[in-house]
């Protein structure tokens, strides 16, 4: 049987991720506002492959990310932009209309800086936290930016990550955050993007990681916790799915797997040849796709690698699921926290 097993091809993935960092073709112009998120996927992916050294533009990446930082305590739009789309020679280094941070790209930029071993000394921590706080709605959920965006569990997770990375939870009202999460638990004990919506592994991961980062996992009652574990475990069938009766998809090996890891229940699923479900979506030229015979992309590649890490695939570093970065990067962050706290 072993003869038929698909082998993990780390070299191809390294090349694929380096290609993304070098640039994208015009067909991916719709990614224009999310370049920071793609950078995070590629850099964190290289980190998981222990290949950061093969990326020559580490310092340039750090400088580019800082060039996207906005701090503006009067408009409360501090954070990191997702790309330079709105940046011009005239407004370089200045505040301007719609030069706003976005919660998802702020998290991605900060995570990437941590992974690249930056010391975060140039981050306007206080301003970002202050702006972040203004994005929380009365029901505890978070908006993505000051105006013009939706609000859901994804952004709650991003907010928790930003607070955790900057070691300052005054960026959110934790009680209201937890209240929003508890109200988003469905009748099937999975967690949705918001109250009464359908439970989904992506939002479940976001909620569980938020509870872990804010040290509030104990707020789940025993039946909620047991029901949640059961719901997540049932998401494993020929690979990981995101909702009941939906096909499996590479990215859920992280969203479902990561939530199970945080809840200390990952070990309950079958281990043998589990990696094959992810490896069937491995492209011969590197990268992972959502399904078999579809085109690979940065997100599925990174989440596939992170999913393989949970399966202890040889050649992949361990992941700290709560922040979705390597354990090594998380250790670096903790050393920064100690320095900031003066201990």
């Amino acid at each position: 049987m072993d003869f038929y097993k698909i082998k993990f091809n780390p070299t191809a993935h390294k090349k694929y991720l380096l290609r993304i960092l070098r640039g994208l073709p015009p067909s991916l112009s719709s990614m224009d506002t999310h370049r920071v998120i793609l950078t995070y996927f590629a850099v964190s992916g290289l980190d998981l492959l222990n290949e950061l050294d093969s990326f020559p533009n580490k310092q340039a990446t750090i400088e580019w990310l800082y060039s996207l930082q906005v701090f503006d305590d009067s408009e409360l739009v501090s954070g990191f932009q997702g790309s330079s789309t709105l940046n011009t020679e005239l407004n370089q280094g200045q505040n301007a209309l719609y030069k706003w941070g976005h919660i998802a790209t702020t998290y991605s930029a900060l995570a990437t800086l941590v992974i690249l071993k930056d010391d975060l000394e140039r981050v306007h921590r206080k301003s970002i936290i202050k702006s972040l706080r203004s994005l929380q709605l009365p029901n505890g959920c978070f908006m993505g930016a000051k105006d013009g965006t939706e609000h859901d569990m994804r952004f709650v997770f991003c907010a928790a990550c930003i607070c955790y990375i900057l070691d300052d939870f005054s960026g959110m009202d934790i009680d209201r955050t937890v209240d929003f999460i508890l109200k988003s638990i469905s009748y099937d004990f999975g967690i949705a993007q918001g109250p009464q919506l359908e439970s989904h592994s992506g939002s479940t991961f976001c909620a569980v990681a938020t509870l872990a980062l804010t040290k509030q996992l104990h707020r789940l009652s025993p039946p909620q916790l047991e029901g949640l574990k059961r719901w997540l475990l049932n998401r494993f069938e020929n690979g990981f799915t995101g909702r009941p009766n939906k096909p499996s998809d590479t990215c859920y090996s992280f969203w479902t797997g990561g939530a199970l890891k945080i809840l200390n229940a990952y070990q309950f699923i079958e281990e043998k040849d589990n990696d094959q479900f992810i490896l069937v979506t491995q492209d011969r030229n590197g990268g992972f796709s959502k399904w078999v015979n579809t085109a690979p992309d940065a997100m599925h590649t990174y989440l596939g690698l992170a999913g393989l890490s949970f399966m202890n695939e040889t050649g992949i570093s361990s992941v700290f699921p709560d922040l979705n970065m390597s354990t090594r990067a998380h250790e670096h962050l903790l050393s920064l926290h100690r320095k900031w706290r003066g201990c």
Partner: peptide, 15 residues
């Protein structure tokens, strides 16, 4: 007004 993407942009898109 052209975009200013700095000296060494990352994940630059070939617009």
């Amino acid at each position: 007004v052209p975009q200013d993407d700095g000296d060494q942009p990352i994940v630059a898109i070939d617009y």
